[in-house]
Amino acid sequence: MKKLIFPILAIGLVSCETVIDYDGELSEPMIVTAPISLQDDRPRYEGQFGFTPSSSLQEIGLTYSIDILDNGYPQQLDNALVQVREKDGSWFQFDEMISGYYRTNGFQFEEGKTYEYRASRSGYETVNAEFEIPNHVEITDAKFVREVGFDSLSFEDGYSEYEITFTDPGGDQFYSISCILVDQNDTLQGSYYVTSSSPFANAISDGEYYAYFSELYSDNALYRGEEVTIPVRVMNLRGEDPPQNLKLAFVLRTHDIHSYRYHSSLQRYQYSGGSGDPFSQPVLVYTNFEGGLGYVGGFSTHLWTE
Rank of each mutant, 00 (worst) to 15 (best):
Y209M: 11
Y209E: 13
Y209F: 15
Y210P: 07
A211H: 15
A211L: 15
A211Y: 15
Y212I: 08
Y212R: 11
Y212P: 05
Y212C: 10
F213Q: 13
S214T: 13
L216E: 02
L216Y: 05
Y217H: 07
Y217C: 03
S218C: 14
S218D: 04
S218G: 06
D219M: 02
D219E: 13
N220E: 09
N220M: 05
L222P: 05
Y223P: 05
R224T: 11
R224P: 00
R224Q: 09
G225S: 04
E227G: 04
V228Y: 04
V232L: 11
V232Y: 08
V232K: 09
R233K: 15
R233N: 12
M235P: 00
N236K: 14
L237A: 08
L237C: 05
R238G: 09
G239Y: 07
G239A: 08
G239R: 08
E240S: 15
E240F: 12
D241A: 13
D241R: 12
D241W: 08
D241F: 09
P242Y: 08
P242R: 08
P242H: 07
P243C: 02
P243N: 07
N245P: 00
L246A: 04
K247V: 02
A249G: 15
F250A: 08
F250R: 07
V251Y: 05
V251F: 05
L252Q: 04
L252P: 04
L252E: 03
H255F: 12
H255S: 00
D256I: 00
H258A: 05
Y260E: 05
R261F: 12
R261H: 15
Y262W: 11
Y262T: 00
